[in-house]
């Protein structure tokens, strides 16, 4: 554990809490992509199957359980409790365009051709692109609530901090996971446009709106 990984995990946790708080306090999931959230639940489910087979640490187990539970909690709030507020007209990204190629790629490029390892690889690839329906939704509506933009900033920062963690681990631990690093870089690059808008608008007290 190093400082980049820990702050990355905290940013990830903060993002999830921010989203749950936004939905709970406003009693609405308007502006949140249910498709991105479904894919995040799928990401956590397929990645953390090693909870059953492999104990790493109490921290690791606790965080994994929180991530899985919170992702299904978010789905419950979006699709059951506050279903009426779900903005499905703007959530039109086709999930199969991501899930199918990602599933194919995880069969072709992985560390080990075994069920758990393929599912882990699938989750890493899927996570890297799972935010696209959310970003697509914002580009369609042209804006995002400030709390939603804080959520996205925390969520994007998490993988960027993990890149620093991988640099650290490469130099100090001789650890290098090509699949995680490439996917993590793709994931972070997808947020760059959003980061720019967030810093130039939200940090100056304005709402996140897209240039016409």
């Amino acid at each position: 554990m190093n400082v980049f990984r820990l702050t990355g995990d905290i940013a990830h946790l903060l993002a999830i809490i921010l989203l749950l708080m936004k939905i709970w306090k406003t009693r609405s999931c308007a502006g949140v992509s249910g498709k991105s959230q479904m894919m995040f639940a799928l990401v956590f489910t397929t990645r953390y199957l090693d909870l059953i087979t492999n104990f790493i640490s109490l921290y690791n187990t606790t965080m994994k359980m929180i991530f899985i539970a919170s992702s299904y909690g978010t789905l419950y709030l979006m699709f059951l409790k506050f279903r009426a507020t779900y903005d499905s007209n703007h959530d039109t990204f086709r999930m199969e365009f991501l899930v199918v190629p990602v599933a194919g790629l995880s069969f072709l490029v992985n560390h080990d051709f075994s069920p758990l390892e393929i599912l882990w690889t699938f989750s890493i690839y899927l996570e890297s692109v799972a935010i696209l329906p959310q970003l697509f939704m914002i580009s369609k509506t042209g804006e995002a609530e400030t709390i939603t933009s804080h959520y996205l900033f925390a969520l994007g920062s998490y993988r960027a901090l993990y890149i620093l963690n991988w640099v650290y681990r490469f130099y100090f631990e001789g650890f290098f996971d090509l699949i995680a690093v490439v996917a993590g870089c793709v994931q972070t690059v997808l947020y760059c446009d959003f980061f720019y808008l967030y810093i130039t608008k939200v940090w100056k007290g304005k709402k996140l709106t897209l240039p016409a």
Binding site: M63, F67, H111, D112, N165, G174, D177, L178, I179, A180
Partner: peptide, 10 residues
């Protein structure tokens, strides 16, 4: 180093 398959990261 060989590719890691005991995934300790989240």
């Amino acid at each position: 180093p060989p590719p890691p398959t005991d995934h300790d990261e989240l």
